[in-house]
């Protein structure tokens, strides 16, 4: 199904859900105010649904908004988002009967920072960016340039294990299979793993020195749903709100441990960071460790028990042995 057709189908389905009273809210994407952006559309008004879009820039993990809203919700979900929804259901943050999942098979999202690097220009100067099969086509001053998707998609999209949601109510378009080259999404991690521990320590020191502690990484993350985060505790005060790099590191590591078994590698933490800290290198490492140690991948199996709430005797062999 071509994009405009599935976008129209989304609009029709969302409108019908609201009009028939089957949901109170629709959460989807509409065109953003800047070039190559979209923005979350959260509405109870059927008239607004005509603004819904599906394109290569629907970056946000909208499941983040589910615990905030009251009533039944129709939500647009890519594969990674659907995994977060499943994970939220397993954690009893959301009830399955309260969500209508409008599933969008996703062939990966375009990373504007990578495109800027590739062409050596700011996004503001680009006329158009389009996607054709395994190519990303960038139009700059009238001239077209082609790049392979492995150069221009987000790392987490390249490593995506579930492009088409497993758990859904309405499927918009044909299912898409995972790429057979997930290694393309591991490049940054592989570089870091090759470093000596000292070099890696220096790397993270430099990266975390510019953290402004805006908590966008935490707030963009659907797995980070604590009503009161440990950084806001004052008795005891685990962490001062002064953004020294050591404390920033402490914050990141604690966050990673807290979302272990819930992180679906949606990449929102890194994308939200205003100062380009490569946070996915931490979260993906944790994701891989969880997969290795516990054979667990968040949101892939809705029958599975949440990782951190149960224990199986054979785990001990792996962990301690």
């Amino acid at each position: 199904m071509i994009n405009s057709a599935r976008q129209q189908r989304l609009i029709d389905e969302a409108k019908a859900l609201l009009k028939q009273g089957k949901v109170r809210w629709i959460i989807g994407f509409e065109a953003g105010s800047l070039k190559f952006t979209t923005t979350p559309l959260i509405t109870a008004d059927a008239g607004d649904t005509s603004r819904l879009v599906i394109n290569s820039f629907i970056v946000n993990n909208l499941s983040n908004f589910l615990p905030e809203l009251e009533g039944r919700i129709g939500i647009v979900a890519k594969g990674c988002d659907s995994r977060s929804i499943v994970s939220l259901i397993q954690d009893s943050k959301v009830r399955r009967e309260d969500v209508v999942i409008l599933a969008v098979p996703c062939s990966g999202l375009i990373d504007l920072a990578k495109v800027e690097q590739l062409i050596g220009k700011d996004r503001d100067e680009i006329d158009a960016i389009s996607r054709k099969d395994d190519k990303v086509i960038v139009t700059l001053a009238g001239a077209k340039r082609e790049f392979s998707i492995s150069e221009a998609l987000y790392d987490n999209c390249l490593a995506c294990e579930l492009p088409t949601p497993q758990e859904y109510d309405i499927l918009l378009g044909e299912p898409i299979l995972p790429s057979n080259e997930p290694a393309a999404g591991q490049k940054k991690l592989d570089e870091l793993k090759k470093m000596s521990p000292e070099a890696r320590w220096q790397f993270w020191k430099k990266e975390l020195e510019r953290c402004i502690r805006c908590y966008a990484c935490r707030n963009a993350c659907p797995a980070c749903y604590c009503q009161r985060c440990f950084v806001e505790e004052t008795e005891p005060q685990w962490l001062l709100p002064i953004p020294h790099w050591q404390d920033n590191l402490m914050f990141q590591i604690t966050m990673d441990i807290h979302v272990a078994g819930r992180c679906t590698d949606c990449g929102e933490c890194q994308r939200a960071c205003p100062v380009n800290i490569p946070l996915r290198s931490l979260t993906k490492e944790m994701y891989d460790i969880v997969a290795d140690l516990f054979h667990f991948k968040a949101g892939m199996d809705k029958e599975a028990l949440p990782l951190m709430t149960h224990y199986e005797q054979e785990e001990a062999e792996d962990l301690i042995g």
Binding site: T39, P40, I42, R213, C214, N219, A272, P274
Partner: peptide, 21 residues
């Protein structure tokens, strides 16, 4: 406010914001 995620980007990186702790 519906889509705001309550992070501090727009304030901490605003050239006229000055609140401190």
């Amino acid at each position: 406010a519906a889509k705001c995620i309550s992070c501090g980007i727009c304030t901490l990186l605003c050239p006229t914001c000055y609140c401190f702790d």
